[in-house]
């Protein structure tokens, strides 16, 4: 097995992992914000519903959720199953938006009431207070926990192999069964390491950018 052909195969596997990572991030970030508003709602039934949902999603394994989303529709309702990749997107987006929503909630609830009140007595509208006063402070507060969660997401994409998605870990693992070699598995680790390294640098950069003020 040549190094070059393994590299090529791993790259095509990594492309799938990256798609899953990026697609999840793109949709779970805004969806998480929506969920966090629900979990802070003054309307009790909604708050209760949303918090229960978050509890279930965070309280069960992502792997379990993947299996249910992929096999559930066919077995429970005799619907035609959805595609593997679609199932993976759905499970990952739901799972990660639940986690993100808690990060947002922590960030928003951590803003002192005095900041809102100062805006109010200066005649600002609710929207002005949120966008001009609160938002950047929330962003600063959530960057560290967000970066943590996003780096976890990179590695969680490997769970998608449970529904036979050819992401990089599965590609590498197949070499054990097919060829009896294990080094591609170690090699795949380098892909994760480098990608997480880049993300770490990126988040560090954002933190530095927001270093000019304290909250």
């Amino acid at each position: 097995m040549s190094f070059i052909s393994v590299t090529q195969r791993l790259f095509s596997g990594f492309a799938i992992s990256f798609q899953l990572f990026f697609g999840t991030l793109l949709l779970a970030l805004p969806l998480g914000l929506l969920i966090s508003f629900g979990s802070m709602s003054r309307f009790k039934p909604l708050r209760w519903l949303v918090r229960t949902f978050v509890w279930i999603i965070r309280g069960t394994p992502l792997m379990l959720q993947l299996i249910i989303v992929f096999y559930g529709p066919g077995l429970l309702f005799e619907m035609t199953g959805i595609g593997r990749m679609q199932a993976a997107y759905i499970a990952f987006i739901i799972n990660y938006s639940a986690y993100f929503s808690e990060i947002y909630r922590g960030g928003i609830e951590g803003i002192p009431r005095g900041q809102y009140e100062a805006g109010q007595v200066l005649g600002m509208t609710r929207n002005q207070i949120f966008f001009k006063v609160v938002l950047l402070q929330v962003v600063k507060r959530i960057v560290p926990p967000m970066s943590n969660e996003i780096i976890t997401l990179v590695k969680d994409t490997s769970l998608a192999r449970i529904i036979a998605i050819q992401e990089i870990t599965m590609v590498a693992q197949n070499y054990i069964a097919d060829k009896g070699i294990i080094w591609p598995l170690f090699y795949s680790g380098a892909f994760y390491l480098i990608f997480c390294g880049i993300l770490t640098i990126l988040f560090h950069f954002i933190e530095k950018k927001l270093d000019y003020f304290r909250v």
Binding site: P112, Q115, Q137, F213, V215
Partner: peptide, 17 residues
């Protein structure tokens, strides 16, 4: 109507950013 009044808080509440 609020603009008739100004308020200085005990804890300043300046906008940190």
């Amino acid at each position: 109507n609020r603009l008739h009044f100004g308020l200085v808080f005990q804890s300043f509440n300046l906008f940190p950013q």
